[in-house]
Write a protein that binds this DNA or RNA. Structure first.
Lengths: 148, 148
DNA sequence: TAGCTGAGTTCGAAAATCGAACGCAAGGGA
DNA sequence: TCCCTTGCGTTCGATTTTCGAACTCAGCTA
């Protein structure tokens, strides 16, 4: 059972975990959510090797997390990488990481960027809630039942 | 700027992303949240190589996500790996992955396990909300402001 | 004394990553 | 036309990680 086999397990947690658990993938998604869209910009801001960047972008394209969109600049047609709806839906994952980072890894309350709700200016946080009673849940509030 | 340097950037998103973005780490946390606690059990259920398992456990110990807790069995003292409070706080990250996986990667609505709220039996989902007005937020509702 | 078990460690082979150079297509300017 | 630049990759040899199987070691047990 190599690492890659988790990507095809019938488990809705292990499959995303295997996909996003590849080196660079989470950092790449962070950069995308921050607005980076072009190969050169990823390479420059993350200092990832070009071959690995190519590979990770291709995996995310294949998984339909990203799409290539043509754009025009200086009369030339080029392509940029943008989130699909599936990709945009990863926002809670990134925000959960950030919420955790703010609580447990804040270096000196220095942030490299701020986030706030456009409508009211409030902060942003991830949470887990019950789909029925809307209570906020922790691991202790949840029971795990194995299938079969 | 090698991969490891993201682990020390002053950014509360890139630091967790670099930590959990190492191969096997997310899958290891999944296994831990499902109740696995011993070296042999991780090795058996994940089929990870023993040396990498040792390394990942040590990183999580160092980051204070896990702790080693002694226990007795057959009159012998051994140790098991358990989540700290910091580790338990990663629950929203895993649940965000699962919520995404359920929506976008459900193989055939087969789950390897079910989750439900102990109190009311409801389902579990991750979401992002505003700390002020409590509205549910997507990436489009949030403005990013770079520091300096 | 010898054997078993859980928890690692060691080490040579295989795979992934790195970094620097190369390839290439689409303009632009001469 | 020829040459230069740009963005976006590809290639390749060197380095780093990971793999898998064997080995170690401590604490019991027989």
């Amino acid at each position: 059972m190599p690492y890659s086999s988790f990507a095809s397990m019938p488990c809705t947690l292990s499959r995303p975990a295997a996909l996003l658990g590849e080196r660079w993938t989470l950092l790449l998604l962070r950069q995308i959510f921050l607005g980076t869209r072009r190969f050169e910009d990823f390479q420059a801001t993350m200092d990832i090797s070009r071959s690995v960047l190519t590979d990770r972008l291709n995996v995310l394209l294949q998984e339909n997390v990203l799409k290539r969109v043509p754009y025009h600049e200086d009369g030339r047609t080029r392509h940029e990488y943008r989130l699909t709806e599936k990709g945009r839906d990863l926002y809670p994952v990134l925000m959960a990481l950030r919420t955790w980072g703010e609580k447990w890894m804040a270096p000196d309350e220095e942030e490299s960027f701020h986030l706030h709700h456009r409508d009211c200016g409030g902060g942003v946080r991830a949470k887990v809630e019950c789909t029925e009673c809307a209570a906020e849940l922790t691991a202790r509030d949840v029971e795990v039942t194995a299938r079969q």
